[in-house]
Design a protein around this nucleic acid. Structure first.
Lengths: 190, 190, 190, 190
DNA sequence: TATGAATGAGGGTTCATTCAT
DNA sequence: TATGAATGAACCCTCATTCAT
């Protein structure tokens, strides 16, 4: 990604997350990127194309971070714990991206189907860990598709929590709580 | 809600969920509702107003159902179990509404802030149950804001699961799995 | 065609012929028609659609006039003479339309293929008359496709002549000359 | 014309005739010419300038061919016959150029006025031949401006014929037919 | 209550042209 | 001579909203 394209990329994240994809205007992106509007179209085919690029890059970042870091951990429990930590930190660091993702994930447009397909690749990584855990008798028998979806749901949870609590947001504290919830459940004495 | 307004209401849910709020047009809503475009403006102030009305009604429906049904249950564990069941069935029945809600929840527009405020009322209901459970020593000590958010995250989870699995969706089966996960965690032997 | 659509129709003829289709702007058409720009799109699907409508209407007018008037004439010679007279007068009266037609007739876009197909219907009318004339031994054996094309070429001739001569244009004088040329040729003493 | 300029020239003819002047883009011309876009502007002042150059060159070619070849013929009749033959062959050989010319001839832009002025020089050549023929009593008394315009109209005719007939186009056959028509008319027994 | 023709601000996109290299 | 990234004016089209009937 060259200098200009990167400026546009960053401006787009900022504007899309502030205004939402539809209310965001190419004019504003150009202004924020400090380039002419035509320059956007020299580097991207369309407004949609910017969004595609941005979602793909963002999910790539998350997937790669997960894949890199979990390999250092010995068993499925430790890996899933790390996934939660990474998700929490990722949301803290790339909040704007997550907002864009969650806004775009639910539609029936081709673009949005494609986003979900992309997300499923992420879920498959989690499924694999769950599978491993079940085989190692570290994780209870469960529907791995449902549980991996739940791991995604955690992202939504955290974002909602963050919206509600505003500044008082500590990713490690969040992660700790979610980990306890996820591994032991909330039922006392079980 | 009189007959015409209801036709518009239903048409709006259909169109908003199919196209998303921004791609939906008043023309299409009018066509689906089989009324003239001007009629929309007789019953609603604006396009935004239709959405507001729709979200408010939908969340009301969910809150009321929860409030009604949980009163029949004796303790917090049973109540939360019921919350999960209701959420799963609600998503099954009002999928289009849930899609609209999840698409609109993340922005920074006034309208969207207002939607979240509305949602927080729902979360407070769950918090209260958690509180009750903690006092009754049925639920472990935990950050109730985080856990109530997690209960909301479950909705996202289920919707993602449903998108992925398509037709094969059994709300009771989902609820069972989520309940086990929520109460006992996934850690084997704990 | 209702009042508003007709205003747009007339404005479009004026603007297209003055500026050419591509240099013409919807803004200018709207201004000349004294309606808002959006109104153009209420009555026509697109700029292309206005052009289509306009060409179709114009060629219809010409075809209908030809078909109506020639039926009054007894033989092919008289009919073709009338065709030339009508063409000359038509060009005099609907000069702007003819300019638009001749500008658009030569391209390879779908729209332009469609225009030519439409024109061919006109040529077929002339072919039929030529056929009739050949059968009646009033017209020499000839390739009727070439000769009917030549009848169309006359329109270009006349328009070129008119461009060159400016104001001094008498459609009857032109028609007389073309008729002599067409029926007797220019070879002296033949 | 050096190598690069010639590549651009040929690319421009191809693109202008395929897309029409307005739909043609400098990008596409550059691509077809296999040079960078900036290079176009090194050799031509503007897109208009390419068109001007191209029309001027094309009409020059036609005029020169006419002037060269007709001098070999003894009288006006033979010269005009040759004009028709040349026109027919020219259209066969430089069809793309003719399409561009006929698309551009009818507008009121300065450039287009200039094209017509250029064309009139061609018509004057024909007028001179007609004049000569009238003086020699080989051609009937007629309005030479109208008849020379008709000679231009023949070009339009032939192109229309060619569009209609597609592959089955024989320039000599066409020329023969047009010659008979032009000299003897189509009236049987005259 | 209901209609639908008319509005016009706003936004995505195109593309000829420029200019530093 | 040649390049191609960058520019920005221009333009088509959309669509929420209005209002006379």
């Amino acid at each position: 990604m060259n200098k200009t394209k990167e400026k546009i990329f960053n401006a787009a994240i900022e504007v899309f997350s502030k205004k939402g994809f539809y209310k965001a205007t190419m004019d504003e992106i150009a202004e924020k990127a400090a380039v002419a509007k035509g320059t956007l179209y020299y580097h991207f085919k369309s407004k949609d194309d910017i969004l595609d690029f941005l979602i793909t890059e963002g999910l790539s970042l998350l997937k790669n971070e997960i894949l890199e870091k979990i390999s250092a951990f010995g068993n499925a429990i430790e890996k899933l714990r790390e996934v939660i930590v990474i998700q929490s930190n990722f949301l803290f660091k790339y909040r704007d991206f997550v907002i864009i993702l969650l806004s775009q994930l639910w539609g029936k447009e081709d673009r949005q189907n494609y986003f979900r397909e992309n997300l499923y690749e992420y879920l498959r990584i989690i499924e694999d860990i769950i599978d491993e855990g079940i085989r190692e008798k570290l994780i209870v028998e469960c529907d791995k598709k449902i549980i991996s979806s739940a791991f995604f749901g955690i992202i939504s949870s955290i974002l909602i929590f963050q919206f509600r609590n505003g500044e008082k947001f500590d990713p490690e504290y969040i992660a700790d709580n979610i980990i306890k919830y996820t591994f032991n459940g909330i039922h006392y004495g079980k």
